[in-house]
Amino acid sequence: MTDKMETVIKIENLVKAFDGRRVLDDVSLEVYKSETLVIVGGSGCGKSTLLRHIIGQLRPDSGKIQLFGEDITRLKENQMDRLKKRFGMLFQSAALFDSLTVEENIALPLREHTKLDEHIIKIMVKMKLNQVGLRGFGHLMPSQLSGGMRKRVGLARAIALDPEIIFYDEPSAGLDPVVTAVVDKLIRDLGGALSITSVVVTHDMNSVFRIADRIVMLYKGKVLQIGTKDEIRNSKNEYIQQFINGTIEGPMQFFAPDEGYLEELTK
């Protein structure tokens, strides 16, 4: 991990409820510069909601979110836009713009947010595509790409503006194990070589142990534990052990109890 531990994201006592149900319940955590923090939890544990709060797409009911030292819950739209140029996001479905080619997708943030010449943008797009290993695919439409390639193009677009943080929402969703490993390697490479801070939301434990510096375990909107890979692996928490090992028996119950079943059938 880094020696200085400069904090880039700080979340304090975040609470969010939808229709009276608390999806995030008093979540506090910090992300340090150039580390890879992985937020892990089952479906519906609130991890995607947490991510959407950090990128300013959702407003919390209470609590604070500091991004680059600024409390984004108080920012105006144009102030938030300024911060948005400093991070990139890879969406679960890659979210490439269907009507634009791969090249145009990657060039879009450059064309809109910089005064760079078109020649320079062309060169940059090639460099970004090469970084994700997709040189020569620029002229294709997103519909012509496989799922893994779409994600890599999404990543190339996310790094177009040389962000300081990249957010990944379920980077391995819908990918086979080999392609998942490829994407995981890209996440590590970007974090390592360019010392970009990465925040990854996932439920894929194989990925987690490959990419994480630190892990946040989330369950039903609450933080169970924050720790390094080893601390999480050796955790005494029964929920965490059940999740890591993927067992059915444990404190998380997925089946309705047997009592009352026969009565309900014969009623």
Binding site: L110, L116, I120, M124, M127, D162
Partner: peptide, 11 residues
């Protein structure tokens, strides 16, 4: 030098 700077040097 960020990526735009590198691209400018390439050009």
């Amino acid at each position: 030098v960020d990526s735009s700077g590198l691209a400018t040097l390439v050009e």
